[in-house]
Design a protein around this nucleic acid. Structure first.
Length: 253
DNA sequence: ATGTCAAATGGTATTTGA
């Protein structure tokens, strides 16, 4: 199985890039974030033409997550099943693997109420991971957390900012402690492997990025990983997302 | 001057969020 996670920053604005990437990369499953679409407007037709079934959980202007699959999409779960008003997580079973696409709240700043919402939300994500059934499991998405300083282009300039604070990093470690492996980091322990670069200031050109898009997989699946990488080419060219797809491949899945 | 994108509103620019 070849699976990717990609924050597309509006599925409407990114549709040409998305469909050409699907044709090029030929993933089996894609976890999408920031569709900024309602379920009504989600482009199921164009995605079906590309060969993928889709499940979407959207709210409109902000947020919105989806799962695209050419190996089936069943048992779809939208949201945590609580009163969260924001469309930030969707789960489904694809090709025998339970997959979730999540869009963790940004947090804005350490003193913003949204930061508390982010920490609470990461806690609920940890509960979901802990409560999973046995079997192949992948939790991927835009975590809006750079797990270590290696995942940040300039840790000194991020002191006091979100995405690198210790409580956020501890929350990600707590999720991993349920038995999940950060597959890109496992395969490439010393490489930054950034997945996001600000649109501003030529950040991509200077590789001023963060690794905030993660694929967390159960340990048995982690042992079957044959490749894991960031598709930086998808960040180049005309009208890119500010995130690049993060891809992993597994044997015998 | 972080100075760019995307969506929505309101009005052909501004606001909000990232």
């Amino acid at each position: 199985m070849k699976i990717a996670t990609w924050n597309v920053n509006s599925v409407a604005a990114r549709l040409p890039r998305l469909t050409s990437w699907l044709a090029d990369a030929q993933p089996d499953v894609v976890l999408i974030q920031e569709t900024k679409s309602t379920d009504d407007r989600f482009p199921v037709g164009a995605i079906a033409d590309a060969g993928y079934a889709a499940a979407h959980y959207g709210q409109g202007q902000w947020n919105g997550v989806a799962i695209l699959s050419r190996v089936g999409v069943t048992d779809v779960q939208r949201g945590f099943g609580d009163d969260d008003p924001e469309a930030r997580i969707i789960g489904a079973t694809c090709g025998g693997v339970r997959v979730y696409s999540c869009y963790v709240p940004n947090g804005r700043s350490l003193d913003d109420p949204h930061y508390r919402y982010k920490l609470d939300w990461l806690g609920r994500l940890g509960e979901l991971a802990a409560a999973r059934s046995a079997g192949p499991f992948i939790l991927g998405g835009d975590f809006n957390v750079a797990p270590t300083d290696l995942d940040c282009w300039d840790p000194a300039s991020f002191v006091g900012a979100t995405h690198v604070s210790e409580p956020e990093r501890a929350a990600v470690r707590a999720i991993e402690s349920t038995g999940l492996v950060d597959v890109i980091r496992e395969l490439h322990p010393g490489e930054p492997a950034f997945s996001w670069w600000d649109y501003r200031g030529g950040a991509f050109h200077q590789n001023h990025g963060l690794r905030i898009d993660l694929l967390l997989v159960d340990e048995a699946l982690g042992r079957r990983a044959t490749a894991g990488y960031v598709d930086r080419d998808a960040r180049k060219g005309d009208k890119p997302s500010d995130h690049a797809p993060v891809v992993a491949e597994f044997d015998a899945v």
